[in-house]
Amino acid sequence: MRIGDTVPDYAIEVRNLKKSYGNFTAVNGISFNVRKGEIFSLLGPNGAGKTTTIEIMEGVRTRDSGIVSILGIDPGKDRKALLNIAGILPQDFNFINNVTPMESLRFYIGSMSAESDPMELLAMVELDDKSNTVFEKLSGGQKQKLGLAMSLVNDPEVIFLDEPTAGLDPISRRTIWKVIGDLKKRGKSIVLTTHYLEEAENLADYVSIINHGEIVANGSPSDIVRENHDHDTMVVHVDDQTVMRGIDLGVNYTIQGNSVTISLTENAQFFSVVEKFRQLGINITDLTLKRESLEDVFIRMVNGDNSNEN
């Protein structure tokens, strides 16, 4: 149970999940929960175990041990029941080359005995103008949108999205983000894996960072950043870099051209540095403050890189 949850209302529960391929341990006893109506993001570098975990939840892959429950269904035991309540967009979505999005959706609707309107689904993902274009002639983004539409055919309660925007242009990515946001508004529970930390930061309510098959951090994106905060970065542009020589700012900094990059470990240091510049009579032509992002924390966590620059 998550901290603060008194009456848990989880759509997904994963307990001590383990999976190995020969001698390689892909998932090593991970546990997490996904609340109903929440966007949960599983983050990690390539080979961390994200796809193995999501595929076990989708019932595509078997697990070695552990408990997995999707709205009370064990995907390893009753995949048929799972497919009635879950929508799945796999990594590198692909389909039959010579069929159109409309035909693909009609096949899905018929197979699942669903009542969706294929045109509505295509309009939702902004693919209605390509309804009669064969799959092989769709762009990467259009294919991914079709995959998303196909995952929604049965109006699922739980949706698994494995890297849904990988390799897409910014416009297609925004379209998919909008659809994901709309699904959350409709109360759907969503599991999202992504390489784009910005995506998780913008969309996810709760994040688990996985590395070498183990979860190394849990929480909302802002909680993770706050709890693992190391330093913010202040960049100051000055008229003349020569005036910076030998100056002690009381913090670590580096100089490149007329630009000074300063590492701030506490908020108060910002004001003290600005005051120092004023006292020394150094003219600041530009100043930006970059707060540490989820991506910065993520990179540090998975690389074990905590070094300070100077």
Partner: peptide, 13 residues
Amino acid sequence: QKKIFRQLSFSGL
């Protein structure tokens, strides 16, 4: 190779 079998299985086939 293209994982189309997997995709077909998601339809319940």
